[in-house]
Amino acid sequence: MKTIAILGTLDTKGEEHAFVAELIRQRGHETLLIDVGTLGDPTVAPDVPRADIIGDQQFADRGAAVAAMAEAAAEFCAKLVAEKKIDGIISLGGGGGTAIGTAVMRALPVGFPKLMVSTLAASESAPSYMGVKDVTMMPSIVDVAGLNCISRPIFANAAGAICGMVETARPVAEDNPVIVASMFGNTTDCVNHAKGILESAGYEVLVFHATGTGGRTMESLIETGLVAGVLDLTTTEWADEHVGGILGAGPARLEAAARNGVPAVIAPGCLDMVNFGEPDSVPAQFAGRNFYHHNPQVTLMRTSADECLALGKILAEKINLSEGFVKVLLPQGGISVTSQSGGPFHDRIADEALFASLKAGLRGDIRVEEFNCAINDPQFAEVAARALLDQLA
């Protein structure tokens, strides 16, 4: 038997949360009904009243109340998890409920069961609610506004889902030291080959897809102190961040390992490309540029020499923050599959601008090694893996 927290704005959505709580109890689990409402009195009796979370604070503005409740509830529930008083959490909500519920879930550890049934689950803003945590969002289809022929089966599925999560035993595995690595489709061969070498040396390698969210998630994991080393061979997110693509990872990308002194090996993988959606989604300002249609939903644009010059400076600035070991590797034969000789993005002038700018901007004590091969050649992957292993040894 497990204990599942049911967190909700019980002043406006008490009936719905009570319905889910009853279904969970029917499965043999205990429930902890937590009220995070900010308007009127709860319509059902909570196990944890809002006063236990936020005290007797009063707010004239609903937005301020939601923000304060989100912060306080996140702290409260994180403590419940740390004290092993709950084994999973579920919430149902519209705008305010989703803001509070997902703020709480983002404060909980990766791997802890968390499910948000939301009117915003299929919206463009869904990634911002999930952040870099494993928040599962389920579309409510209709508003969370009573029980009806649509909401009942949706809420029942949600209750079954969270029960399934807490009932599933975690596989027992040997905890090896962790290395994180960045990868894109155009650096897959390189990273997979390096991953095999690192795993053979006794490390667990976690690979993050460099899609913006992947880079942010990797940075956040490095910040936790759980990471022994970083193989950051796919720094492409900076191209999107700088030029205006859709897969930027934010201005702090490349800072976590540097500031925390975590050993890192870095390469400018896939900085030859900026990502957009379907062809019609590419901003008009880029008309006439060199494009490659990766698939119907992804349009790639070649970075120019000027953009590469700027990207080299940005990478150098971030790498210069390093307080521990860092090595930069430059594959002269191509920084992606598409930029190799004969590829659609092959542009020696742009690549040379990137390399020259990066080398010129780095601190004198940071080692740079150049190789007459492409990033996906086995030789490059082997050098990158060995360079990191030498430091970790």
Results as ranks from 00 to 15, higher is better:
S281P: 05
D272N: 12
F59E: 15
G361P: 11
C270Y: 05
L80C: 11
G277P: 10
T213A: 14
E15A: 01
I349G: 08
E167N: 13
G312T: 05
P279R: 12
F155S: 02
G88P: 09
G196N: 05
V135R: 10
E15I: 01
E352N: 15
S182I: 03
M183I: 07
E71P: 02
S151I: 05
I34G: 00
P46H: 00
H242Q: 15
C373I: 04
F380R: 13
I179Q: 09
Q297S: 14
H193F: 10
A107T: 04
G334D: 12
V207P: 03
L271W: 05
T188N: 07
I90D: 02
A350M: 14
R152C: 07
H17G: 00
F345S: 15
L10V: 00
L80N: 02
I90N: 04
T12L: 01
T211S: 12
A122S: 11
S220E: 15
V144G: 12
A239V: 08
L206M: 11
V81I: 07
G342H: 04
L221E: 04
I141G: 10
T38N: 02
A159S: 08
I246L: 14
T303L: 12
N372E: 07
F59D: 15
N376H: 09
P378M: 11
M116C: 13
I53R: 00
T213Q: 10
G164K: 15
M116G: 02
S341R: 12
I222F: 02
V227L: 07
G37V: 01
T236Q: 14
L221C: 03
N275C: 12
I222V: 07
S339R: 13
M116S: 09
V178N: 05
L10C: 02
T12R: 00
G95Y: 03
R152N: 01
M105G: 01
